[in-house]
Structures are given as structure tokens and as C-alpha cells.
Design a protein around this nucleic acid. Structure first.
Lengths: 251, 251
DNA sequence: CGTAGGCTTGAAAAGCGTCAATAGGAGTGG
DNA sequence: CCACTCCTATTGACGCTTTTCAAGCCTACG
């Protein structure tokens, strides 16, 4: 469903890349000049499925998406969550055969960019290539933290950790305040992201609530009662997110 | 400990990058022209520690290393294993503050390359930048598989899976035959890589042995009795390794 | 007003962890 | 060449976190 080709739509990508790499006016203009089409996506809709041959990269314009993998026994593991300004499917399109699926968590808009145009851009403009590379390295850092989270932390710590990560990433992305955010995931999805079961997620969330660490005004929102304590319980340190040094801390 | 500056030492890096990206003679020469120093490393020695400011990237010339993270409770999670030809610490050096440690699993030699020289090379030579980017993307793909392995597979499957991954990666790297390889990890280290305990690793390995799926001629070697079965038990598919299409399959 | 998807809760089982003791093997020094 | 030591592997018994199964509930929405 092709809607429009508004040339300012790629601004979130410029912002994301320029967050960590200094980009000159020409580099910025070159990114904005990438061809793309905007697509409206529904909740649950797939952007790519494992084993597809992906020839496009998609930029999240609004809404949330997840990357996930299925095991032989039919269990799902969510391996990453993406929000506005993030390029999903760079991975799959650059490596030809998709090694995981990408699916919308909420309705939203994405900008579909041909892979070959991104390759051309990176070959033409070394600083843009560098910025994309750095972005990929940060993604990998988050993946490492997730391996540790899922592999070596107990349920309470794991859940507190992921809630902290969301809080910080959403705040940095301008999508949340210090203490409150919309959590676009069901308990099933939280379970798939933490390697637990929905039942245990439910119990763990209730536990954190009872302790006063979080509040749930409604099932799709989280308010952090005591950030310091939650971060401590969640063994959370922002180091792995590689934020800018001047990024204000949460409290 | 600076030993020598033999200009052919970086050949494994050229081979690794050229495995997935076509590189011309000039690009190859530019990589080989990178300045470096060779260091002998002992078993257990750290290449970088979490929170260090890394200014070098290291290429494995021989031996094995692991990347790992520690949790607040003192548990360790190994998040990646590296062998000859792989660049460790690209991640840490490009992102300034290290988000994980890199440590030798065995004695070995590494080539230490200044980060700034790598950046310069990638800004000068777009195809080299592209090759390094692709390499980072494959690393990230392996991390995603590890998240799924540790998050959603039971002990038997997890262990079988990691044994399969080693078999394939070592064979592709020319470090193993079809059915046999040296496994440079203790059971403690295997536990840290799979999110299990050493005791349970021991029992699981014994179980796989009893089933005839593997044999252990000695504690540092693995022979695969029935590759097909092991891959099935381990829910293993090489897709996520993004091998070349002409790469012969194991059997 | 009915239905579907998600949330909540209980009871029981299972898988894996913990603790502890023993055994084996490689290297070291006398 | 033997005794000693350190590190790793092995095994048993027990306990606990998390899963599984199952039922009921709530709420949004057609």
C-alpha cells in the first residue's frame, strides 16, 4: 500500500545516525534523498519472515516492531524491539536470506527503502557508511546484553532489566517521560523477549508492583515508582546502550 | 610484548573479509598495509575488560578467545567465541567504552591494530568498509541465534546446538574435519556460554555421548558420531551463519 | 450482548541449580 | 621417580525456580 513520498519522512533516520556520528550537511541531504515508499502497517503484520529474500530495508516512522526467531518446538524468542527512527531489516536485506522475522507490535508507519540504494549511499559517502556501521555495532551490543539477561539472570532481575531498557530507550527517542511510558507488549510478548512464560511474567510483574518498584495504570503502561531501586534490582547500567555523554540520566 | 611486524600476518583478515565481500587487489593490499604489532597471549589473559577505553582492535592469529559479560551476582555469560581470522574488539574500540570483556581461552597470537587506522581505512576504501559492516552483521546474526538458544531451548538442545555451531565454524575456518575437532573450552566455560551450570553441562554431555551422538576421545575434543541426528537434536540450521552458497555441508 | 484475546490465580510437576564429596590428570619440585 | 598440588571432571542427593495445565475473569469491540 503505497501512500506518499514526503521527502522529510526520513528525518528520524538522520537524527538516529547523527546521534552518534557527526554528519555534515551533504551527508544528511544524501540520506534524505534516499528513495522510499511509506506503508501503513497493522498490528501483528510481518515486515519480513525468516528465510525470505529481503531486498528492502525498513525505517520505523511510528509504532513498534520486534525481531524474533522460532525454535523447532514452536517456541518464539524475541531478540530485539524497535521504535521510531530505527532501521529494521538492514540485517536481513544485507545478508540476503533472512535469519529472523520482523513483525509489527502495534500499528504504525514504515518507510521502505531499496537495499541497493542504501548500499550505493554507503559506497558514495564514507561517513554515512560509518554511521550505519556504528549503529549496527550498538545493535550488537544490545544483543549481547540480551544474551546475558536471558542466560544469567533470574526472572525478577530479567523483567526489571527489560523495563529499565525500555524506559531509557523510549526517553532517548523522545517517546516517554522520566517515569512513565506506554509499553506496547502483551505479557506473552514480554515472555518471549525474556525467555520466560506468560504466567511467570504475570507473577513477576505483580511482584514488582507489590514492592512499589512499578505501577501499571493500565495493562499497556508502566510507571516507575523507584527508578534507582528498579535499576538496582534489574542489574541495569546504561553502558551497553552507548548513549551520548551528555545524555541526562533517568531518575 | 612486541614481537615482530611480519607484513603477511594480516592475511587471515583478508581471507575472512573476502569470504563474503568481493575485494579487489587494491583493497586487499590496503588491508595488509595496516600497521599492527603481534602479541603472544596466555590462556586466560584479557585482551580488554568491560569499561576499558579500547583504542585498538585485535585480530586473532591463532588460539581462541571469548567475549563475556558479568552480572551483578557474579555470574558470567559468554556471548561469543572467536577464532583465527576474526576481529575481536572492533566493537569495543569503535564504541569507546567497552561493554564486555574479551579473554583468551587458549594461548595464542593476536595482531593489535590501532582503531584509528581501521577507521581511516574504512573511510578511504568503501568496499573494505562494506566488508567490515557485513562481518559485523553476521556477528549480530550469531548473537540473535544465541539469544534464542539460551532463551528458548532446553539444556540438551542448547548443548547440541553449540557443538554443531563449533563444528561448522571450525570447518569453514579450516580448523576441523567433518567429524572431529578440538574444543578449547572447559565445562565451566561451556556452561557460561549456554546459560547452564557446569554440573548440568557434564550430565548433558554424558547424555549425548550415551546416545551415540558425540564421542569425547579426550576432555578437549569432540567427535560427532551422527551429524544429522546431532543437528536435529540441536535444532541446528546453518542459515544464521550466512555461509557462502558453495560451502559444502557437513555430514 | 456476546465473543475473543489477554490477564490472573492455583496446584502440581519438571528441569535445572546447589551443595558436597570424590576422582582423575597434568605439571612441579624434591 | 614419587609426592604434592591445582584444576577440571564426575556423581549423588536434595531443593527451588520456573513451567505446565487448567480454570476463571476482565475488557474492548463488533
Amino acid at each position: 500500500m503505497q501512500l506518499q513520498t514526503n521527502s522529510s519522512s526520513l528525518q528520524p533516520l538522520v537524527d538516529k545516525l547523527a546521534y552518534r556520528t557527526a554528519l555534515g550537511a551533504e551527508d544528511r541531504a544524501a540520506i534524505l534523498a534516499l528513495p522510499f515508499t511509506v506503508r501503513m502497517m497493522e498490528r501483528g503484520q510481518f515486515i519480513v519472515r525468516e528465510r525470505d529474500i529481503a531486498t528492502n530495508s525498513c525505517l520505523m516512522l511510528s509504532g513498534y516492531s520486534v525481531r524474533s526467531k522460532m525454535t523447532a518446538t514452536g517456541n518464539r524468542q524475541i531478540v530485539a524491539i524497535h521504535m521510531k527512527g530505527e532501521l529494521v531489516d538492514l540485517q536481513n536485506s544485507m545478508l540476503k536470506v533472512a535469519d529472523h522475522s520482523v513483525q509489527m507490535l502495534t500499528p504504525g508507519r514504515i518507510a521502505v527503502i531499496p537495499r541497493d540504494e542504501i548500499i550505493r549511499l554507503t559506497l558514495d559517502r564514507p561517513m554515512v557508511a560509518h554511521a550505519m556501521w556504528i549503529d549496527t555495532l550498538v545493535d550488537a551490543s544490545i544483543l549481547r546484553e540480551w544474551v546475558a539477561n536471558v542466560g544469567r539472570r533470574d526472572a525478577r532481575t530479567r523483567v526489571a532489566h527489560i523495563l529499565c531498557e525500555f524506559a531509557v530507550r523510549l526517553r532517548v527517542g523522545g517517546l516517554a517521560t522520566n517515569t512513565h511510558y506506554e509499553l506496547p507488549m502483551t505479557q506473552d510478548q514480554l515472555a518471549d523477549a525474556t525467555g520466560l512464560t506468560a504466567v511467570h511474567i504475570n507473577r513477576t510483574l505483580k511482584g514488582l508492583e507489590k514492592e512499589g518498584l512499578i505501577e501499571r495504570p493500565n495493562p499497556r503502561a508502566v510507571s516507575i515508582g523507584d527508578w534507582r531501586k528498579l535499576a538496582e534490582v534489574g542489574d541495569f547500567d546504561t553502558n551497553y546502550l552507548h548513549l551520548r555523554e551528555n545524555e541526562p540520566a533517568l531518575h
